[in-house]
Computed example of a mutant assay.
Amino acid sequence: MSEIVSATLAKEYQENGFAVAERLFDPSEVAELGNAITEILAVPDIGSVAEVEPGDKGMARRIWSPTQQHPAFERAAAHPGLLDHVEALIGPDILFHYSKLHLKAPQVGSVVDWHQDFAYYPHTNTDLVTALVYLDDTTVENSALQVVPGSHRQGLADHYVDGHFRGKVTGANAPDPALAVPIEAPAGSVVFIHCLLLHYSSPNRSDRYRRAFLPAYRAADAFPIHFGPHAGHNEAGVRLLRGAVSDTARVEAGAWRLPLAERPFGSLFQLQEGAHETATAAASTGYATTEASR
């Protein structure tokens, strides 16, 4: 990546809380990841590898830790071009944090309410970034990510409802819908999301899929300050991808409210929908207790 591209990306990220690299993954790489999804889901019980849509739809809406389930996703998370962009945003010492994969099926895909990723996994500093890799051409119609530019500079919003962490920003704390900006981009594009950026996605009302692979990264000197059941298990899979490990935690001033839910939960969807109040956190798969619950 050229110094000009690097500087432009970093400037956009610093100002807006997100930046977009169009077609960072070429069509053959996107096709490989699409084939990997098909292979992962080719099992008798989809619930053993993924979370399914509620009700009788029977469609997968999230694949647990895709980097653990198929080598194509492990390679994609360490893609040199992707890591070049991550380095421009959080520095040269990069740790892989976790991965997930959202599958928004046509006319089905679940809503993701307004939230900030940092609320789920507070760290000593905010040099954490998620790379949302669009695996389909993405528009508002098939649920493009929507964000509030600049919201990452406003600190951590309240994600509590009735005294318990619910992983979403609601009521008077929710952003004005008029401020939402959809991020539309072709397949292979990557949206880099600051951990304090307010974002959400609507249900998929189109006749097309909107699949997105989300590997997350953090600076080597960012250390977790919460080890609840939905966050602490990430540490077993954390690994150095570039640079060097750190023996020093860089600490930002501030107060981070911890994600203390009323009951354990297995995913962002389950928590935001309130399904965790009547279901066990382990859900129907062992991955629910070993995959990042976001």
Score class of each variant (00 low, 15 high):
residue 129 V to K: 00
residue 257 R to T: 11
residue 268 L to M: 13
residue 64 W to D: 09
residue 172 A to G: 08
residue 214 L to P: 00
residue 69 Q to C: 12
residue 288 A to G: 02
residue 25 F to K: 03
residue 127 D to H: 11
residue 23 R to S: 11
residue 26 D to S: 14
residue 76 A to V: 07
residue 292 A to F: 11
residue 33 L to K: 07
residue 106 P to R: 03
residue 108 V to E: 10
residue 40 I to T: 05
residue 44 P to I: 10
residue 97 H to V: 09
residue 152 H to V: 08
residue 196 L to P: 00
residue 191 V to Y: 04
residue 49 V to H: 02
residue 250 R to M: 05
residue 178 A to Q: 13
residue 98 Y to L: 13
residue 209 Y to N: 06
residue 87 E to H: 10
residue 111 V to S: 10
residue 193 I to W: 01
residue 193 I to N: 04
residue 283 A to Q: 01
residue 271 L to H: 14
residue 35 N to M: 14
residue 200 Y to P: 05
residue 227 F to T: 10
residue 285 T to G: 15
residue 36 A to N: 07
residue 250 R to D: 08
residue 51 E to H: 08
residue 61 R to H: 14
residue 23 R to Q: 12
residue 120 Y to M: 06
residue 59 M to G: 11
residue 164 H to M: 05
residue 23 R to T: 12
residue 20 V to I: 13
residue 260 L to F: 05
residue 26 D to L: 14
residue 158 D to I: 07
residue 234 N to W: 00
residue 269 F to D: 05
residue 115 H to F: 05
residue 92 P to F: 03
residue 36 A to I: 09
residue 71 P to K: 13
residue 160 Y to I: 03
residue 174 A to L: 06
residue 37 I to L: 14
residue 220 A to Q: 02
residue 213 F to C: 04
residue 175 P to S: 06
residue 150 G to Q: 05
residue 33 L to W: 05
residue 209 Y to E: 06
residue 116 Q to A: 03
